[in-house]
Design a protein around this nucleic acid. Sequence first.
DNA 1: TCGATATGACCGGCCGGTCCGCTAAACTGA
DNA 2: TCAGTTTAGCGGACCGGCCGGTCATATCGA
Lengths: 211, 211
Amino acid sequence: MRPRSKPTPRTKKDVVVEFRRKMIFEAAAKAFARSGYEGTSVDAIAAEAGIGKGTIYLYFASKAEIYLSAIMHEFNKLHADTVRRFEAISSCREKIELYIRVRVDYVESHRDFCRIYVSEFGKAVTQPDAMQKQFRKMRVRQADLLTEVISKGIATGEIRPVPARGAALFITDAARGLLEKRLLGWSEAGADEDIHLVLDLLWNGLGGVPA
Amino acid sequence: MRPRSKPTPRTKKDVVVEFRRKMIFEAAAKAFARSGYEGTSVDAIAAEAGIGKGTIYLYFASKAEIYLSAIMHEFNKLHADTVRRFEAISSCREKIELYIRVRVDYVESHRDFCRIYVSEFGKAVTQPDAMQKQFRKMRVRQADLLTEVISKGIATGEIRPVPARGAALFITDAARGLLEKRLLGWSEAGADEDIHLVLDLLWNGLGGVPA
DNA sequence: TCGATATGACCGGCCGGTCCGCTAAACTGA
DNA sequence: TCAGTTTAGCGGACCGGCCGGTCATATCGA
């Protein structure tokens, strides 16, 4: 009964390891969101998780690995979720709206992660330490996703001809700005209003309708 | 001849102090841009400036003060420059173009400062330590400036009616995104092309002209 | 009892900030 | 003008605290 070929490659141990890692980097996300990467000690993470510091090093090689794991994990979920939900939609405009909405929803439900996400994306402009590379990659993936949406939109005539890449970055920036605005509590408006304003500006711009 | 009322309140010492402070935070800007706030030691700043560490503490009370001084100094210049040049312009659209252009030009001439500026603006979403407060204030000042421009534009009919504050933040986000793009070397286009793309998107949006 | 897992005291290195000794400019008097 | 004296400005060795990471020991489940 042991040599089951491949149906459950996960041993009990794997499950336990997965469980531990998750509980650690969830605690870590809270701590990091509170005081940033440098400002958070591994002791603080251990305390937040209610375990000893040594235990952490049983499941992670370094503080940096915790940080990256936590963020990559959440980012991948966010990205996969976006991609999955794109499939049910054909309209380019709705895809852009969805892109923004998914992220704004994230702010409500994963405030900790969003704090890190937003602030870390900004730090990517400092000289390329190994970690920043990861963040740039995430940014590229986001941009790629939207670049394709835009290109398609242009092809179908839904969007006027604009440089797709530049427009995609423009959207990611607008979305990020919205996240920050809400994270900082600068918006007394509801999520829907905020999203629609940004979407309206993205779509129609500031200029008066010529008609 | 000593008691001249107020024409030159600057003693020779004041001048020298100013000179020193400037040379220190210019060196600091370089160092900080290279490795961020936490990643930069005061020793490194001293080395960059070619002076002893003790000397630094003759002119600044703390590492944080160096950082803030350096950034506030540059930010104030940038802001004042923008305001001053706004005065020569009445068109709202040109003001927005100018706002972006001034900043893109800054990337070319003050790469170090821009690295800090961009990355620090992102960090403002982490919990309010005393320093982050300063950065939020700067952000607010930028937004105020543009909010007024937009309001005026709406009043004259140059801009269609949109929530001025939200639109202003939208512009700051777009501008910041452009700075990052160029800082990261993600743009092979010239400054003018980049600016015009962003301006075009800001003004006309993505949607096809209905006509 | 024995292996596996968890712990936190401990270590070594780093860094912000201090402080004391040094140097050279400024001042003084002849 | 110059020797002697004061003083302002500078530098870098040093200190205390913090923190990432380790490891000997303790705890626990079987």
